[in-house]
Amino acid sequence: MSDYVTYDESDHVVTLTLNAPEKRNAISTFADCDAVVEAVRRVNRDRGVRAVILTGAGTAFCAGGDLKAMRDRKGIIEGSHADLRENYRRGVQAMANALYECDAPTIAAVNGPAIGLGLDVACMCDIRIASEKARFAESFIKVGIVPGDGGAWLLPRVVGMSMACELSFTGDQIDAATAKEIRLVSRVVPHDELLPAARALAARIAANPPEMVRMTKRLLREGQHMRLSSLLEISAAYQALAHSTEDHKEAVSAMLEKREPRFTGR
């Protein structure tokens, strides 16, 4: 079992840390990808988890793919053309699917460079906040490859097609302030305040009815590629479920009684 991801839970919030600072949290092996997938599965199995923070150990968020592994054709970058195609499906693409489809809301706390795959990992999360030391690049083109991890689908949905094309075709690196300007991140904070800011945001999310937050996330996800009429049908079904929950009754009662609600997830 890889120790590439650490898992810490407190007050209904899980912090996942990419934990390979010696290689700037680059992703190079199936074990690295599997560690992320298993961490997300653990979140999904625990209905007590109400929000997830994803960050990196050391000075980087994630440096993307491991260039030495690419050079030496090791790990995921190993075998024939057919092998490589299957390796991507089994490795980084399985990780992308898992992280993007995580049931709980996810916050990427980008503490340093998020390069190539690292940028796309941040885009797999629902919300991105950045340290002033963060840097971003959709830099696959710079090493002669394409976004094999879903970045061509993710990035345009975050920053729009024109900016996604500019970042992808040039491979240019941008700083945190520019990332906020193009809406790649929601906010930029001083480096030492990054995790406190992420935890405060996660706590505000966790203070709400947890199942309704998860259903709201699902509606937002489905709304990215579904007709309005179809989304309205799902919304009606979810709303009927929401009205039958104890947390809905508690929310209404607390608002009328001008007190803090106590949500249980039921």
Rank of each mutant, 00 (worst) to 15 (best):
Y100W: 13
E101H: 15
C102Y: 06
D103Y: 14
D103V: 15
A104T: 01
A104Y: 02
A104D: 00
A104G: 03
P105K: 05
T106K: 02
A108Y: 03
A108K: 08
A108T: 08
V110N: 04
V110G: 05
N111P: 10
N111C: 10
N111E: 05
N111A: 04
G112T: 07
G112N: 06
P113I: 01
P113K: 02
P113V: 02
A114L: 10
A114Q: 09
A114C: 13
A114P: 14
I115G: 08
I115C: 11
G116Q: 05
G116S: 15
G116R: 07
G116D: 03
G116A: 14
L117K: 14
G118R: 11
G118V: 09
L119M: 15
L119W: 07
D120V: 13
D120E: 15
D120N: 15
V121R: 08
A122V: 09
A122N: 03
A122Y: 06
C123I: 03
C123K: 08
M124I: 02
M124F: 07
M124E: 07
M124Q: 12
C125W: 00
C125H: 06
R128V: 13
I129G: 04
I129L: 10
A130H: 05
S131A: 09
S131M: 06
E132H: 05
E132T: 14
K133A: 11
K133Y: 04
K133P: 00
A134V: 06
A134G: 06
R135P: 01
F136E: 02
F136G: 07
A137T: 05
A137F: 01
A137D: 00
A137P: 06
A137V: 01
E138N: 15
E138L: 09
E138C: 11
E138T: 10
S139E: 03
F140K: 12
F140E: 12
F140A: 15
F140C: 13
I141G: 10
I141F: 05
I141H: 06
K142G: 05
K142E: 00
V143S: 02
I145K: 08
V146R: 07
P147H: 13
P147L: 09
G148F: 15
G148I: 07
D149Q: 09
G150H: 10
G150V: 11
G150A: 04
G151W: 02
G151C: 01
A152I: 13
L155K: 12
L155A: 09
P156K: 01
R157N: 09
V158P: 03
V158D: 01
V158A: 04
M161E: 04
M161P: 06
M161K: 12
S162R: 14
S162L: 08
S162V: 14
S162F: 08
S162P: 07
M163Q: 13
C165W: 10
C165D: 14
C165A: 14
L167N: 05
L167G: 03
F169H: 11
F169A: 12
T170G: 04
G171R: 08
G171K: 06
G171N: 02
